[in-house]
């Protein structure tokens, strides 16, 4: 496969959706309540649908999902982080869905290969963001225990958020404007949830973020092993 700017962008956006979808799917059978299990599975399904469209723009969706090595994935390190406790999953959802909604809003407004998908997906992502915000408010402004765990989760994932605003070649996006809008939206939600906006670095030496270049964190390899092993053990198998 030749990686043009267009397929590179399709991989970056598609891998974000695919990897987060898989991480959310890991909650099946483990979510705190049934309604939440269904909600996370539905969000995962929306993301999987986006991933299928995006990866199909770059090549064969199954080959790309199941037969690439870790270094060939272009997703953000944020989305590959393990689910952690429920607060970590919600913090990741808050950071990512806010980013994805703003990004897709820009892509939907322009002429380009991604406009059609973005216009459709942005309406779904609005519900993902709303879900994450409602939980952030409930946990942050809840009990001492839930507040503390939500605070820890928001801080732990903060250093992965700078990477979201690295320009992706092949899409025309106002990245600086995207970052400003993201910070404003997330800060507002955290404030309403009685949480403080984390102070740690989001870029530079102490921040994370080279997923778009194919460098990933340790848990990602284990996630891929689980995600790919069936397909690799039984090539061509179907239900």
């Amino acid at each position: 496969m030749t990686v043009t700017a267009h397929t590179g962008a399709a991989l970056a956006l598609g891998d974000d959706a695919l990897v987060l979808s898989h991480r959310l799917g890991e909650w099946a059978g483990h979510a705190p309540v049934l309604e939440e299990e269904v909600a996370l599975a539905n969000i995962a399904l929306d993301l999987l649908g986006q991933a299928r469209v995006l990866l199909s723009m770059a090549g064969d969706e199954d080959e790309l999902a199941y037969l690439r090595e870790e270094r060939a994935f272009r997703n953000l390190q944020l989305v590959e982080q393990p689910g952690g406790d429920f607060a970590h999953t919600i913090a990741r959802q808050l950071y990512f869905s806010t980013y994805q909604r703003l990004l897709y809003t820009q892509l939907a407004a322009q002429e380009g290969a991604f406009a059609g998908l973005a216009a459709k997906a942005v309406k779904e992502v609005a519900y993902h963001q709303d879900h994450a915000e409602q939980w952030t408010l409930r946990l942050g402004d809840g009990t001492a225990q839930s507040h503390e765990r939500m605070r820890r989760a928001c801080e732990a994932l903060w250093r992965f958020t700078g990477e979201m605003f690295q320009p992706i070649e092949g899409v025309e996006v106002d990245w600086a404007g995207l970052q400003t809008a993201w910070l404003e939206s997330v800060s507002d939600t955290l404030r309403r949830a009685t949480l403080e906006v984390p102070e740690g670095p989001r870029s530079g030496a102490w921040a994370a973020g080279a997923g778009r270049q194919g460098l990933h964190t340790e848990p990602f390899g284990r996630m891929l092993a689980e995600m790919q092993h069936l397909h690799r053990s039984h090539p061509g198998a179907s239900w």
Binding site: V38, A39, I43, Y127, H131, Q134
Partner: peptide, 13 residues
């Protein structure tokens, strides 16, 4: 509203 997502993605409970 009980949940924004129900038996399918297109429905709320």
């Amino acid at each position: 509203l009980l949940s924004r997502f129900s038996s399918t993605a297109c429905k709320a409970l």
